[in-house]
């Protein structure tokens, strides 16, 4: 009923058009899902044009080669062969994945108690806590990373602060430009992404289950591991994926705080599109990264669902 005038107004021209209009109108009136899809179509169109088509183009590029000025569009696996021939690529890929995993783990461990606190312990002003957690997430990523460079630097906040307090005599060199700095900065930058999914899954837990566990004699600790933790796992997994997937490809953080030892695969991809100017190689590297991430994520999800099915 909602689209009556919609169709009638549009088709009032030639007779053939009118009959087509009536047919269309009848079709849309009959099927609710058609009207829904009509409303959804602009968004889907944008997604297809700006995401799917470009990603397919990226895959196509990975099978081409770079001449000095233009792209040679004959199909070749040369870029993928290069990946396997130069061990640096694979080494960097695994290093990026490892650093991302550390970062994801750190983020989750830090975030879980916070989410637990908001879900179970905050009775009043839950809204304020949620907003406090969310707001930093919306502020500039670049500036948050830059802040860590300022803090950890050789003459940065920590070093100069400790020296002026008389605790240190000379600056600590190990703070900035290493993998640990990257992991720390990423864990800070992605914190809010982890808290919210965990919070949602904790909030959804039926409180009567907790009461039942207590009534049946569980200590609070047992109750947490037997009821709360398993029920919050979907949120933890979602949070883990939300942090892990984007951080593997990050290049801003390694570039600003990683130094030479903190470099990640994203930096190499970026340089292929910049100084190195080998777009097809960059495309191949990013396709391989996406594949690796997808394989890891799918195996992980399959493993967890199987484990949960067993229990």
């Amino acid at each position: 009923m909602s689209d009556q005038t919609h169709a009638a107004g549009t088709y009032s021209g030639a007779e053939e058009q009118t009959s087509l209009g009536f047919k269309l109108r009848a079709l849309f009136l009959k099927h609710e899902w058609l009207r829904g899809y009509l409303l959804l179509s602009p968004t889907l169109l944008v997604m297809i044009c700006l995401m799917c088509v470009p990603l397919f183009m990226l895959i196509a590029y990975s099978f081409w080669t770079q001449n000095y000025l233009d792209i040679d569009k004959t199909f070749t696996l040369a870029n993928y062969e290069a990946y396997f021939q130069k061990p640096i690529y694979a080494a960097l890929m695994f290093k990026s994945i490892r650093m991302s995993l550390y970062c994801t783990f750190a983020t989750l461990v830090l975030a879980y108690p916070m989410a637990y606190f908001i879900a179970f312990k905050v009775k009043k002003n839950k809204l304020i806590w949620l907003i406090l957690i969310t707001v930093p997430f919306w502020t500039s990523y670049l500036l948050r990373v830059f802040a860590w460079k300022v803090i950890l630097g050789f003459n940065g906040v920590i070093n100069s602060g400790l020296i002026s307090l008389g605790i240190l005599n000379e600056p600590l060199e190990f703070l900035l430009y290493n993998p640990t700095a990257v992991v720390l900065t990423l864990a800070h930058a992605w914190a809010a992404f982890a808290i919210l999914p965990i919070y949602v899954s904790l909030e959804k837990i039926d409180r009567s289950l907790l009461e039942a566990a207590t009534d049946l004699g569980d200590t609070p600790r047992e109750r947490f591991w037997r009821v709360t933790w398993p029920l919050s796992l979907p949120g933890v997994i979602a949070a883990g994926l939300l942090v892990f997937i984007p951080t593997v490809g990050d290049y801003v953080t390694p570039k600003l705080v990683g130094g030479t030892t903190g470099i990640m695969i994203g930096n190499i991809v970026q340089s292929q599109f910049g100084k190195a100017n080998n777009w097809p190689m960059g495309a191949a590297l990013s396709v391989i990264s996406m594949l690796m991430i997808t394989i890891l994520v799918v195996t992980f999800i399959a493993a967890t669902t199987r484990a949960r099915a067993k229990n």
């Binding site: 995401m51 470009p54 183009m57 990226l58 984007p246 990050d250 970026q270 996406m290």
Partner: peptide
């Protein structure tokens, strides 16, 4: 999930894909 995909795809991948297209 499809519409939410840009939240999960690493920014660098979307960036270079759009650059390429």
């Amino acid at each position: 999930s499809f519409i939410m995909l840009p939240l999960v795809v690493p920014g660098i991948i979307l960036g270079i894909a759009l650059l390429v297209i």
